[in-house]
Amino acid sequence: MLDFTGYVLRWDEGIRWALTAGTNLLKSIPWIGNQLYEFVLGGSEPGPAALIRFYSWHIFVLSLTGAVVMIWHLFRVRRDGGIAAAPAGQREDSARITRAELLRREILGMFFGGVLLIVFSILVPAPIAAPMRGATIVDADSSAPWFFLWVQQLLKLGDPFLLGILLPLGVILFIGAMPYLFKDIQQTELGRWFPRSGQRVQLIFILISVIIIALTALSISQ
């Protein structure tokens, strides 16, 4: 959502079909689709009201929610002594990561992440096309944003609601729910990369990733 609302803010010909198809997907939701569409766009078709709305969702509602969740995440990492760790008695090193060490790692991560993004944005110019003005189409790009190419490929197969909303939402929810659904990992193996007891989860995750990557590649090649 944060990616899509940010992508739309370009408001150029490059986003015309992504915005049209993405918002028309809402209409395919039974019962509430049309009302939801008008609520999201602020009109019966994409226009200035839609741009303001996507701007507010992107910089206010979604960013604020993201910030709250991120703060909670960092707090839990600190409190739990890492992303995942075995109970104190079963760990080889019972010491928790210190606050200073955690802060050092996070700042380093932010620094290198920031430098990487700045270098990338300097070397690869942003693909901004001609501004979108009304219904006149100027060489619009029909590709979905890169993170939704797999959904665009799915949509070529048929029903928008099933393939464009239910299935992607189901996949995302399933990935989020995996730690709660598969409790295979043994306590002694917590906090380790690719534990043996978690092979079933790893296999399912790899399978989902391969399908998404394959759909994305297929979409790019067409």
């Binding site: 766009l41 602020g42 009109g43 019966s44 078709e45 226009g47 009201a49 839609a50 507010s56 206010f60």
Partner: peptide, 15 residues
């Protein structure tokens, strides 16, 4: 206040 303003929006004119 912002949320209430957001919800009581004026629609863009229809095409």
């Amino acid at each position: 206040g912002g949320l209430i303003r957001f919800l009581s929006f004026d629609m863009d004119p229809a095409p």
